[in-house]
Design a protein around this nucleic acid. Structure first.
Length: 189
DNA sequence: CCCTGATTCGC
DNA sequence: GCGAATCAGG
């Protein structure tokens, strides 16, 4: 499928809006891959949309030895699981019983408007894992195959570890292993 | 592992 | 011009 003016405009809009290439590809659908989007973006010369200008030396350490293409894949239909985006804030439930202690809400909610909108749009059912009290682990109860994802405030009695089963040398259960690596948030790039 | 954008280069 | 493969980074 070629790039009609409509699609190009939509691409521009979404890209400038800050959506990732894969997300845009998902929106455009119909056999449009992330690479196609990125390639088009480059050709349109509208790449680098939030460059701090600092830190982009583009070091090409490996000069690319030989990267011939593989035979054509015949079918390009791709049903990307777009609705799988999970952006959830780690619930920090710190106590609550005592006197009116915690009004410690930072001023982090500044540039959250658009992001939050997109968030709600794409991950309507995102939720944090809930671990039943009887399954929660203290530090001493951790073993090789228990998820070591910390939940809550370490300085608080209700701090505990996930404790779900984790596979083969992995420190976290499947649910948390992603979060461990992946930067769900962070506004630096 | 998952993902991101960047680049190359055969088509 | 297009985009798959690949790279480099998070």
């Amino acid at each position: 499928m070629g790039w009609t003016e409509e699609r190009v405009e939509l691409l521009k809009k979404l890209w400038l809006e800050g959506l990732s290439a894969s997300q845009i590809a998902g929106v455009l659908g119909e056999g449009v891959t992330r690479n196609a989007v990125i390639g088009k973006v480059h050709r349109l010369k509208l790449s680098g949309r939030a460059k701090p200008a600092t830190s982009t030396p583009r070091v090409r350490s490996a000069p690319r030895p030989a990267a011939r293409r593989v035979s054509s894949p015949a079918s390009t239909s791709r049903s990307s699981g777009l609705g799988t985006v999970m952006k959830t804030r780690n619930s920090m439930n710190v106590g609550g019983g005592g006197g009116g202690g915690g009004a410690i809400h930072g001023a982090t909610a500044l540039k959250m408007e658009e992001e939050f909108a997109v968030e709600m749009e794409m991950a309507p059912q995102a939720a944090e894992l809930f671990i039943p009290v009887e399954q929660r682990l203290t530090l001493l109860q951790l073993s090789e195959h228990t998820c070591k994802w910390p939940i809550g405030d370490p300085l608080t009695p209700d701090f505990y570890f996930c404790g779900q089963h984790s596979n083969e040398g992995k420190p976290y259960c499947e649910f948390h292993s992603r979060r461990a690596y992946h930067q769900i948030d962070k506004k630096k790039r």
